[in-house]
């Protein structure tokens, strides 16, 4: 299978694929399918930026274990809530307390 093969990983889940249809050996024969799996749903705490306080030091960007922070052109964080799991590491590392944490309400 080449990288051009379209693969709708969601259909595996939607259609509840069984043993005869799933690729053997538990492989996923397509790239970057983790983007389809929104780990942000696991989040219990949600980081929120106080833009006034942020100095653009980028420390939160580098510590995020889930690559869930992008930076704007002032190097202020933009959280990708699809993948932020709410580990609060960014909150802890911020030297000016510019990230606050709120309980996730779903």
């Amino acid at each position: 299978m080449s990288d051009k093969t379209p693969i709708d990983i969601k259909s595996w889940i939607r259609e509840q694929w069984g043993a005869s249809k799933l690729p053997p050996g538990g492989v996923v024969p397509a790239p970057a399918t983790s983007l389809e799996y929104k780990t942000g749903e696991w989040r219990e705490f949600k980081p929120i930026l106080d833009d006034e306080k942020c100095t653009g030091c980028t420390q939160c960007y580098f510590i995020c274990p889930d690559d869930a922070i992008k930076m704007d052109d002032r190097f202020h964080p933009i959280f990708d809530y699809d993948f932020c799991k709410g580990c609060t590491l960014c909150v802890e590392i911020c030297p000016v307390d510019a990230i606050k944490i709120v309980k996730e309400v779903k």
């Binding site: 299978m1 043993a19 799933l22 790239p31 970057a32």
Partner: peptide, 29 residues
């Protein structure tokens, strides 16, 4: 190879996690 294999130009993943919703099907295979 009868299955997907690691090769240049053939992206994919092996050795993945399968939780209760898929583990049994893979064992049945």
């Amino acid at each position: 190879p009868s299955n997907w294999v690691f090769a240049p130009g053939n992206p994919g993943a092996q050795g993945l996690l399968a939780l209760p919703d898929y583990y049994m099907e893979l064992k049945y295979q």
